[in-house]
Amino acid sequence: MAQLERFAELRPPAYGVDAVAARMRALGAGWPPRDGVAVFNRVYLSVTEEVGRHLDGGAFPDARAASTLAVRFAERYLAAVDAAGDGHRTPACWRPLFQYRRHPGISPLQFALAGINAHIGHDLALALVDSCHTLGCEPADVEDEFDRVGDVLGSLEERIREELMPGPDLLQVGDPLTHLAGSWSLERARDGAWASARALWALRELPAVAEEFGERLDEAVGLVGRILLTPLPD
């Protein structure tokens, strides 16, 4: 599956943030709560709802740009869900989560972090490029919206860790889950996504090189996801 759509074929989003949130709710209702994709879906739904509240409250300088970015971002995840549901090969960044979604030795926190890693480490960069083509602008023109969406994600990261950590007895430096969770950073993933988006934008006149860059990014993020989903002893 090609990871970069043909930019010329991109159309404006046919629906808004509320519609993608509704789709996530419908998906979650059909999955067992302990399912690894369902765990991530709940986390991502809370982020999407928060972005929607910010949009309604006028928190974004350019609401159209922010909405476009949020929807293009969600489309990447929903496309992976559809591919997995149809028995097709998902992008490499998502493959570990779909492969291990029912593994009993993996904690909900690991599932959530693996999904966030795939979505921010890979999908966010491509979604920003998609958005720039849709809006007819440069990445720098939507940097404020990118940062504000990232701030929403960042504000939820600590809550996610607190809610999904099994208990205070695991808050020790030597504990495997604490060590694994502490080895991944949302802030660094955001910074990487911004740099990757700028590189992809600079390569837009070299589609073969951009495609190869996107594939390598996909594979690298998938490798991190596989490490985050290492089964841990009880």
Rank of each mutant, 00 (worst) to 15 (best):
P166D: 07
L180D: 09
P176N: 13
G182Q: 08
L170P: 00
L153G: 12
G174K: 02
P168M: 11
W184R: 06
D169G: 07
T178W: 03
P176M: 12
P176H: 08
L153C: 12
P176K: 05
M165D: 11
P166C: 04
R188L: 13
L156M: 13
I160W: 11
A181G: 08
R188D: 14
D175Y: 12
E162R: 05
G167T: 13
M165E: 07
W184P: 00
I160D: 10
G167K: 08
S185P: 04
R159E: 13
I160F: 12
A181Y: 07
G154C: 07
R161A: 13
P176F: 10
G182A: 09
E162Y: 00
S183V: 04
E187G: 05
S183K: 05
E163S: 15
L171N: 07
E158H: 14
M165L: 13
P166V: 04
W184T: 05
G182T: 04
E158I: 12
R188K: 11
T178V: 01
L180H: 05
L186T: 07
M165W: 03
L156K: 06
D169K: 02
L156S: 10
G154H: 04
E163L: 15
S183P: 00
S183M: 09
L186F: 10
D175I: 03
E162T: 02
H179V: 03
L177P: 02
P168W: 09
P166S: 02
R188G: 01
L170Q: 13
P176Q: 10
V173D: 02
R161L: 14
T178I: 00
S183D: 14
L171M: 09
H179D: 07
R159T: 07
E163D: 15
I160H: 07
S155C: 12
L171Y: 03
L170M: 14
W184L: 09
L177F: 02
E157Q: 09
R159L: 11
S155M: 14
D169N: 00
S155Q: 15
P166K: 00
E162D: 08
P166Y: 02
S155F: 11
L170A: 05
G174Y: 09
D169L: 06
H179M: 10
S183T: 11
G154F: 03
L180F: 03
W184Y: 14
L156H: 14
L186K: 01
E158F: 12
A181I: 12
L180C: 06
E162A: 08
L186M: 09
D169A: 09
P176Y: 09
E187A: 15
L186S: 05
R161N: 12
P168F: 10
R159Y: 10
T178Y: 09
L170G: 10
D169M: 02
S183H: 10
G182M: 08
V173G: 00
G174Q: 13
G174R: 02
